[in-house]
Amino acid sequence: MIHVQGVSKSFGGIRAVRDVTFEVARGEVVGLLGANGAGKSTTIRMVTGFVPADSGSISINGFDTLDAALSARRQVGYLPESAPSYAEMTTRDYLDFRGRLYGMPRPARRAAIDQSLARCDLADVARRRVGQLSRGYRQRVGLAAAIMHDPPVLVLDEPTSALDPRQIRHVRTLVRDLAKDKAVLVSSHILPEVEQTCDRIVVMARGRIRLNAKPRELLAKHRASAPLVVQVKGDGEAARRAFASIEGVASVEAGASSGNWHTFTVRGTGSLEEAVGAAAVRAGLGLRELTRAAPSLERIFLELIEGEEDPGKAEGGA
């Protein structure tokens, strides 16, 4: 539904987005994640047709955002960051205006307004001026405006940034519900947000995509390559030799030890838990702990972003 192919964008010599490629399919929620200034908003603005890309191409539901700009924009429901809307208008009037911009006839508009008011929990403020509403309500007015013409593609820039925990849960459920028959691109700089709502995350840093993966697969992958931490009671040197002789073990690193207790970090390939356990028993050691030091998604995310802060490392991995 959303195809972004080799897209770059510069602002006055600063390369905000560099050679970005990703896709969002129907029924999928993709989280665009990155620190502030990583190029998320620029990417989103190119997808929604607010700014054109310098190079590369973007198509929305088959429509190119430059060659068929109006058709492409018609496919998208867009909630910009900070959800701007006209302060002097009432919620209902604003939604009516949005419906008219999308060429919806009056009866369809009325039905769509009622539906999106209900879905975004806004019925009680339908006749209030948008400018008088709290930030959380305004955010949901923007969301209602984005979904009211039932677009096949939804682009939400920080959709939960001003909401309280109950509202956040409500919006998450709504987004998951909407994603059944839509392609949804959600941006955020908060990981838990993306982790819970998204099927896939695209991490950006310094204008580039650093990672495009499913959260579960990402965790599994990092888990598999994570070192084993073993704590045993007995002869430390014997234990080190026992572990090092296991097939598949690449290195054994001695950690802290207190009295008879020794901690080792065992690195290697394959699932080594059983072999390490068995080796400890054979060597007559008391086994107290055997765990994988698996990183949290947060850790992985921070490493990706921080690795990118240092220009020396920037050209290396991913």
Binding site: R45, T48, G49, F50, L70, S71, R73, R74, V76, Y78, P80, S82, P84, S85, Y86, A87, R98, L101, Y102, G103, G142, A145
Partner: peptide, 14 residues
């Protein structure tokens, strides 16, 4: 200033 230009200019209107 208010940013409403963004939803306006991303709607299917020339």
């Amino acid at each position: 200033k208010s940013g409403t230009i963004e939803p306006l200019m991303t709607s299917p209107v020339g």
